[in-house]
Amino acid sequence: MRIPHIYQAGTIEVGTELQLGDDAAGHIGRVLRMQPGQQVSLFNGEGGEYLCTISQANKKNVYVSVDEFHDVTSESPLKIHLGQGISRGEKMEFTIQKSVELGITEITPLFSERCGVKLQGERLEKKHQQWQKIAIAAAEQSGRNFVPVIHLPIKLEQWLTQPSDETKLTLHPRAEHSIKTIDKLANFNATAMRFVVGPEGGFTDAEIAATKSADFVDIKLGPRVLRTETAALTVLSALQLVYGDLA
């Protein structure tokens, strides 16, 4: 049986007893119904994982003894930042979850002209917290010891103008370049990339022009038009295959 891999924020020290946070304790105590004596693997996002033994467990509180530290990683050598046009309902959650499984480093949800989702104030903050929890759960499930950052949503033009030395890519069905040819770009960076994907309605002509002004290079994935959630995951998979660790 696989040892559960659980995120626990904060300091974890070998040789100590640790009370788990509410989310970790709830997952272990209520969902998995684990008992004292069973083992869990904890990670705090700072690298490596900690093998622990449950010393006390109920539906509200879980205590573990921290037995060993293992300096292991499943992170890709390729750092990828996705700028994702916010999509409706579960599509955005699906994109975040699967992107984390595929090794994304950062995701910034983007408001654009054709974005059909309106978020602000308390509703925006709750949605952002929900997206980050989805990223944590996906990191747990996929065995990552790093939790990708889900940034607060911003406008597309703000994201495009952020200083960056990454390879910058935009999807376009009639682009000259493909993922296989971006290594010929003058400012190509094989270890750090960012790419932007439009919302369900796509980008306007003015927004496409703005990506070019910000030195983003159009790339194509093939002759078919992909849905926004399919496009993001396809680009990520292709980048990991060619420049990362997907084999």
Rank of each mutant, 00 (worst) to 15 (best):
E229F: 07
R123Y: 05
L169M: 01
G244I: 07
L160C: 06
E49P: 00
H177Y: 09
L152Q: 13
E200K: 04
P153E: 02
T211D: 01
T105L: 09
L78W: 13
E68S: 06
I3R: 15
F146C: 00
L160Y: 12
G143A: 05
M92D: 11
R144C: 00
F43A: 00
A247F: 09
V217K: 13
I182T: 03
G37C: 13
V100R: 00
E229W: 10
L82A: 03
A231W: 10
M1L: 10
Y63F: 12
T11Q: 14
G202T: 07
R194Q: 11
L236I: 00
Q97T: 07
F111A: 02
G103S: 08
D165C: 06
G85F: 15
A24E: 04
I208N: 14
F195T: 01
P4Y: 04
V225G: 00
G89V: 01
D215V: 01
Q8L: 00
D215Y: 12
P223D: 03
Q97I: 04
D71S: 14
I54L: 15
Q130H: 13
K168L: 11
R123V: 05
A206P: 00
L169G: 05
E46V: 08
E17F: 14
D183Q: 04
R2Q: 11
V66R: 14
F69D: 04
V196D: 03
E176A: 09
V100H: 00
Q120T: 05
I54T: 08
L110E: 08
D205S: 13
K126A: 11
V197W: 14
S76Y: 08
Q84P: 08
I219E: 01
H172M: 01
L156N: 05
A138T: 00
V235I: 15
D165G: 11
N145G: 07
G26N: 14
R224C: 02
A192S: 12
P109Y: 15
P199C: 09
V217S: 06
I107E: 06
I219P: 03
G244N: 11
P77E: 03
L221D: 02
A214F: 01
Q120P: 02
G85N: 07
G37D: 06
L226P: 09
K59D: 14
I136V: 13
A190W: 11
F69Y: 12
E90F: 13
K133V: 02
L18T: 08
K180E: 01
V235S: 06
A138E: 07
R30E: 03
T16M: 06
M193A: 10
S55V: 15
K180S: 09
T16Y: 04
N189L: 12
P199F: 09
D22H: 10
